[in-house]
Simulated scan of single mutants.
Amino acid sequence: MLRQLITFQIGEQYLGVDIMAIREIRAWTPTTLLPHSPAFLRGVVNLRGTVLPVIDLSARLGWGLAEPTQRHVIIVVQIASQLNGLIVDAVNDIVSIDGASLQPPPELGADASIRFLEGLVPVEDRMVMILSLDRLAAEMASAPLPEAA
């Protein structure tokens, strides 16, 4: 079965997400910080009257906080009934993959970047990590809040 993905980059890493979860891709907009939110939640933006939480995907995957610039973009995805924005460095292509070519991530323990993956797939000369939005959302709901100072 063929699936269509949007591929994007965080640093030198290539990731993909099912195209049906994408609602829009928008230019970087500075966020409004929320008190006592997890470090990966960079704040919220106004999306045509809706408060949109913006997730630093690099931080959520354990790769460190992004330093967003005007070159960054926010991919607006729908997870269940909730819209979320994901900060990424760049959006690349729409690709079609054969579901049979999707390989499970290797068992490496509880590494943050692995547990959010549905799998890996070769695209041209690189491996693309397919993000599991459901797992990302489930983990966000249970993320610990920072300690009060």
Rank of each mutant, 00 (worst) to 15 (best):
A143E: 09
L145K: 12
P144I: 09
I19W: 08
L108A: 10
I94K: 09
A39Y: 03
L47D: 14
M20V: 14
A66Y: 00
A143L: 05
W63N: 04
V51H: 00
Y14F: 14
I6N: 00
T31M: 06
A66P: 02
G99Q: 10
P30Y: 05
V88L: 05
E118W: 00
Q13A: 12
V73K: 14
L61F: 06
G64R: 12
V51Q: 01
A137D: 14
L33P: 06
Q9L: 11
A148Y: 02
T69F: 07
L33Y: 01
E107D: 15
I79W: 00
E118P: 03
V91E: 04
G49I: 08
A39Q: 13
L131S: 03
V123A: 03
V95H: 07
A138W: 02
P30D: 01
L108P: 03
L136F: 05
L86K: 04
N84T: 13
S96W: 08
R115Y: 11
Q70E: 14
R42Q: 11
G16T: 08
F8E: 04
D93T: 10
E24I: 05
Q103S: 15
H36S: 12
A110S: 13
A110V: 08
D18I: 04
W28G: 02
R3T: 04
P35W: 03
M1C: 09
L33Q: 12
S58V: 00
V77C: 11
A80K: 12
S81H: 13
H36R: 14
I25E: 05
L33T: 09
G16C: 03
Q103T: 13
L102W: 06
I79S: 11
S37H: 02
E147S: 15
V73S: 08
E107M: 03
P144L: 06
